[in-house]
Amino acid sequence: MLESMLIYLPLGVIAGVMAGLLGLGGGLVIVPILTITLKMAGVHEEDIMKIAVGTSFATICFTSLSSVYAHNKKQSVMWDVLIRFLPGVLIGVFALGYFVNYLSNTLLSYLFSAFVLFSIYNLVKKKPPVVEDKAPNTHFLTLSGFGFGIGGISALVGVGGGAMTVPLLSHLGHEMKKAIGTSSAAGFPIALAGAVNAVWHGFDAPNLPEYSFGFIYLPALIGIAITSMLFAPIGAKLAHKLPQVALKRVFAIYLSIIFVQMIVSAH
């Protein structure tokens, strides 16, 4: 188990930095690489995406806690917005997370690929920067409604929802730093609900690899969690210092490579 765990330490570094830097939970980094390593480890084909998604959620629980702590110190978490956003998120995660166990590995791969395309679009599209937070007090039902959609999609593709939450909050008029900080905070309950779903639905599943806890692969969870928690605060500091446009373009290039890899692996 120790040897397997060490393989995932570098992955946690990337996931942690991305979590703090762009408000992403790290799932866009973790899921694609897990599909490769799990396949190389001989995991049953139909379980690969389910385990990748479940393990991604479990690691995001740790990454997001570290990230939100760093962002909260800089007062960039909008807790009032988060409270109105979370009820819909949690309902969405549990409602659509129920169906993950019944979807094929190929379909889940295509869903993830579609989400990657959406994320690339949000990263490269031009939008006017919000320098000062002047967002209206968005109604509870409106935010919860958006939260339901984000939570449901997150449950299907194993992400913390940052690629959707950050653009949404920015569109509503919140400045980017606060959108990223609040997205990091929202990632924890999304990931926790997704991880519970993964354990619940995968607990008695046949053909799981050794050291699995439901659809969570423990060597990957431990290895990624250790380094992602250490590096998420570094990403959060960079988010307040580096130009976001250049960073988003670099990440968009990475996602483009991931998109091709996911499409190829689905066949």
Rank of each mutant, 00 (worst) to 15 (best):
G20F: 03
D47C: 10
F188K: 00
V264S: 06
L86V: 13
P128I: 13
I14K: 00
G173Q: 07
G97R: 01
G181P: 06
F99I: 14
I7W: 05
H174F: 15
S256M: 14
L107I: 15
V199T: 07
N101C: 06
A185F: 05
N105T: 09
I48V: 15
S183E: 06
A239R: 04
R249I: 12
A95N: 09
N137R: 11
G54W: 00
M164G: 04
L230C: 10
F188Y: 09
R249L: 12
A41H: 12
V68W: 03
F251E: 04
N105C: 06
K237Y: 10
M78I: 15
I91Q: 04
T182G: 08
L143Q: 08
D47A: 15
Y121P: 06
P233D: 08
G27C: 07
P10W: 08
I257D: 03
G152P: 04
P136S: 12
L24T: 07
M78T: 10
T106R: 12
L247K: 03
G202W: 02
S256K: 06
F146V: 09
K241V: 11
K241P: 02
S154L: 08
G214M: 09
F85Q: 05
Q261Y: 07
L22T: 07
V31H: 01
F115S: 15
G158H: 03
F118I: 13
V17E: 01
N122Y: 13
L169I: 09
H171L: 15
F112L: 11
P10L: 12
L238I: 13
T35D: 03
L11R: 02
M40A: 15
L247M: 14
E132T: 14
A186E: 08
P128G: 10
G42Y: 06
F203V: 12
Y69H: 11
L28Q: 05
F115I: 13
F85I: 10
I258V: 15
V17Y: 03
D204L: 11
S184Y: 00
H267M: 15
L169Q: 06
M1K: 06
A58K: 01
I257N: 05
G152D: 06
P32A: 10
L143G: 03
V250E: 07
V250M: 11
I153W: 01
L242A: 14
V116S: 02
I258H: 00
V68K: 02
Y217M: 09
G151R: 02
I216K: 00
S265K: 13
L6P: 04
S113M: 11
V166Y: 01
G187Q: 08
Q244M: 11
H174D: 10
P167R: 08
G187V: 08
L141A: 14
G23W: 01
W200V: 13
V131G: 12
F231K: 01
S212G: 07
I60C: 00
T63G: 05
Y211F: 14
A239P: 04
L2F: 15
F62E: 02
Y254T: 07
N72M: 11
P87V: 14
A179F: 08
G194K: 04
I150R: 01
T182K: 03
Y102S: 15
A232D: 03
N122I: 12
A114S: 12
A198Y: 00
N197Q: 11
V124H: 03
M5F: 05
Q261H: 12
L221M: 14
T182H: 04
I180S: 05
V157Q: 05
S256T: 15
L82D: 04
G158I: 02
H174E: 10
S265N: 13
A195I: 01
A19C: 14
L22R: 02
N122Q: 13
T63L: 03
C61H: 00
